[in-house]
């Protein structure tokens, strides 16, 4: 039997496929369709300090092999999350990665402090790359200093209790330098990629279709961008664990991200079309790895980077 387990920093997971933040709500909703115990972990919707309504509707437009969303981090706030959603996940034996998002460096630190003493969390994903904020200047992951400051604050607040995964945006000129910055500030791993900033114009109203005008593109349309981003970062920092995501809807897609350098893979938009996608992808991946002669998932991580083998002929 192939060993499918993986690690992200000090966190160990029996399975390599995770939900993607914001694409599984708080986990409960998917439990009717998949067994949460059988997947890597539930990555929760990014939670903020206060409850939030998100952006007005329309919040979504389907595009060719993708969709553009502008949910805007609607959620109940951290206190309600810790009182209701987290205990439910723990009771139902799901592994949990909590995603946090803030409007200021301080908000991230406050959130991290609240998570520090909460039981049942495997890691913290720090979403510094949500494109759906009022002010594009507030996307921390587009600014090397801002992203370092956030991670620095989170690291101090957590005091080394939980691994930190920094979630980055592909919408930057030099992804590797942003990645290096957050790792230097104490992130244990990276989540790549968040959605790609995009827009759809409705040709009947002849205005932007989304009420928030811009949104984030996700789904199969962005998979090659994810593969590129993961490959670039793994190439520069081969020891840094990467949680890969972006357009994965089959075991083949997941394998591509793993070969590029991802140690685990999150599935987002694919669950909208198929709520049992996470489990199906996990099974397909196992089959594909076995068919290629791997005896463990970790052997395949970054395998696309191997040095040209000496010709045997």
């Amino acid at each position: 039997m192939i060993d499918m387990s993986t690690t992200l920093g000090t966190a160990w997971f029996a399975h390599p496929i995770f939900t993607a933040s914001g694409c599984a709500s708080s986990g409960k909703e998917l439990a009717q369709f998949i067994n949460l115990e059988d997947i890597g972990a539930v990555v929760t919707k990014s939670v903020m300090n206060k409850a939030r309504h998100g952006r007005p509707t329309p919040r979504m437009a389907e595009t060719a092999s993708g969709m553009v969303n502008s949910i805007g981090l609607q959620g109940p706030g951290i206190d309600s999350f810790l009182a209701n959603d987290l205990p439910w996940l723990v009771e139902n034996r799901a592994r949990v990665i909590v995603s946090i998002a803030g409007e200021t460096v301080e908000e991230y630190a406050v959130l991290a402090r609240k998570l520090r003493s909460a039981p049942g969390i495997s890691a913290v994903e720090v979403n510094i790359s949500c494109p759906n904020v009022e002010n594009r200047g507030l996307v921390f992951a587009c600014d090397p200093d801002a992203s370092r400051n956030v991670i620095d604050g989170v690291r101090r607040a957590l005091g080394g209790e939980l691994p930190i995964i920094a979630k980055l945006s592909p919408d930057v000129t030099d992804l590797v330098s942003i990645a290096r910055g957050v790792i230097d500030s104490g992130a244990d791993g990276l989540a790549l990629i968040n959605t790609v900033l995009a827009m759809v114009i409705n040709i009947d109203s002849m205005r932007p279709h989304l009420a928030g005008k811009t949104g984030g593109l996700s789904g199969p349309a962005i998979k090659p961008i994810a593969v590129r981003a993961i490959y670039q970062v793994h190439s520069a920092m081969p020891k840094v664990p990467i949680l890969g995501m972006g357009g994965v809807s089959s075991g083949r897609d997941a394998l591509e991200l793993i070969l590029a350098g991802a140690s685990g893979v999150s599935v987002g938009t694919a669950s909208f079309g198929n709520p049992s996608a996470v489990t199906q992808i996990q099974n397909e991946l196992q089959f594909l790895l076995e068919a290629r002669g791997f005896t463990s998932l970790t052997q395949a991580v970054g395998y696309a980077h191997r040095i040209e083998e000496a010709s045997t002929s």
Binding site: A51, T57, F272, P275
Partner: peptide, 23 residues
């Protein structure tokens, strides 16, 4: 987008019995 409660695209403002409106 999903029909099963995981994406938050389909929201409308609804009040609860105390008059507090959420999406």
């Amino acid at each position: 987008a999903c029909g099963v409660g995981i994406c938050m695209t389909c929201v409308i403002p609804v009040a609860d019995e105390f008059g507090v409106t959420t999406m």
